[in-house]
Amino acid sequence: MAINAEADIQAACRAARQLAETLGFSRAAAYHIATAASELAANVLFHGGGGWLHAQALFDAQTQQALGLEVLALDHGPGIADIALALTEGYSTGKGLGCGLPGVKRLMDDFMIESAVGAGTCVKAIKWR
């Protein structure tokens, strides 16, 4: 799903919530996933200048059961110079509150971030069932 306007953030948020609910996540977990998707999408738009957000279910190879949900945010923006600093509570380059990325990390179970200055940023967050 492409993120290029504010309306796309809400659409991504809705889509992530729907996917979480169809996978049988609890209401609270679905809410967490939706919020995380919304935060990541907002980051993609405001810091990365637009990009993509993918949400997909992770299945067990043998039993075909849904194990979790993965949210992947991608942008080709300026990148993050100091990832540790970006993950620090209350630190923000923009006008935000500075709790987006650390918040997503707490909301989700697994969190990975890769970034290269000048090339873009990729954030992957997983919530297990």
Partner: peptide, 14 residues
């Protein structure tokens, strides 16, 4: 604020 909303807000650190 729903119970899930409250939980999410605190996890976000708001």
């Amino acid at each position: 604020i729903s119970p899930e909303g409250a939980q999410t807000l605190t996890k976000l650190g708001i």
